[in-house]
Design a protein around this nucleic acid. Sequence first.
DNA 1: GCATAATCGATATAGTATTATCGATTATGC
DNA 2: GCATAATCGATAATACTATATCGATTATGC
Lengths: 224, 224
Amino acid sequence: MTEQKENKTLSVQALRRLPDYLHYLKGQNPKKDQYISASTLANALRLNEVQVRKDLAAVSPTSGKPRAGFEVTQLIQGIEDHLGYHSVDEAVLVGAGKLGQALLSYEGFRNAGLNIVAAFDSNPEMHHTSLDGKYVFPMDKLVNLCQRMKIHIGVITVPTTHAQEVCDLLIEGGILAIWNFAPVNLKVPSHVYVRNENMAASLAMISQHLKQQYQKDSMEVSSS
Amino acid sequence: MTEQKENKTLSVQALRRLPDYLHYLKGQNPKKDQYISASTLANALRLNEVQVRKDLAAVSPTSGKPRAGFEVTQLIQGIEDHLGYHSVDEAVLVGAGKLGQALLSYEGFRNAGLNIVAAFDSNPEMHHTSLDGKYVFPMDKLVNLCQRMKIHIGVITVPTTHAQEVCDLLIEGGILAIWNFAPVNLKVPSHVYVRNENMAASLAMISQHLKQQYQKDSMEVSSS
DNA sequence: GCATAATCGATATAGTATTATCGATTATGC
DNA sequence: GCATAATCGATAATACTATATCGATTATGC
């Protein structure tokens, strides 16, 4: 058995970088480049070299070889371990609107360790239809199905107004982690983890950046 | 003219919290609660009180009153200023698949200062159809339309394989900021800002949390 | 083989972000 | 009016993250 790796040295920020590393590594030819150096990775992803080295040291099962780098296959293995890609978790999705459908049909999640096994929606017209192989059930089946299947992850893609009530149902069904796409601060008991996908925050960063850009530009113009 | 507020004290993390503050404040009754305290907000959003106070101090045009708090309307004004919601930026979206459609039909962006004016897709069947009032154009119209309309934001919701080429087109069209939903590290010139919507990273956090949870649980069981 | 240069790991430093503390201010209720 | 308690702003302490530096290690090419 692969011994349980200590994850303590891995910061939240580092965890966010792992998918990027993984993506890059998977794009490599394992025959041609058996090893990869932290420097190379850092350069490709525009990160600091030391930072990358530290991250890799934390996830790699074997340590890096001077002059060569880290073994690519080992790295991939290590990163996927840390990301939990090897233990596929089952999830349910609530809200089969456009966003919900987009997520349901996104095959990439499967590789990333998330398997959405069923969807729920309050709209009767959608019931028992199949979206990309996943059936849409009425809301009143939710709690029971989650409990019976021991599902631990719930994805919320319903309108803001219904997010909290859906959240409550999921918790009743025994969900332990919620991936929330509605812009609300969900109230949950302490044992439940909520990950907010905050589109508005992302937007804010973009618009903030553009604003600063404009400001800088206008300053340059006026001072020249 | 409202004088240009100095944004320097506002950290990236703080910026991420602003949409949450805003959402909460908008949910308040301005007649009933003219003032709101940092403590109240902190409690509602489960944040540290001092942190909230610092954030509010940075965005509020007027300082808070002891014992009362900050004026709600002023705060909303201040936050929206900082988020750039008062200068609605126009954007184009490339890739009218499920995710693209979800974003097109998400009305919330309008309030958040983003107005998607047009969509592009390589699939001829979609051309000139209208999704939620936005027309889908063929790819070869992209550069010209962006330039003519002076669009500065591009949203990429195409498959990974085409993301970079779409990105290049957008830049050719004069785009300054890119909101990228494809899991690729886009190569862009230094004046272009890229905001990656990293679903995989979010997933990682969830699975990481669940893993720790399981570990903790099993430890508790085995030690009892 | 041996010098060279690339890379590593470890440790130190710098930079950010969060949380704690404290005196000053002011609404509230007696 | 005056004591009280809630809140503020400022500053200090802590924790977290990123970057720089340096000696140790090892592939590469002569």
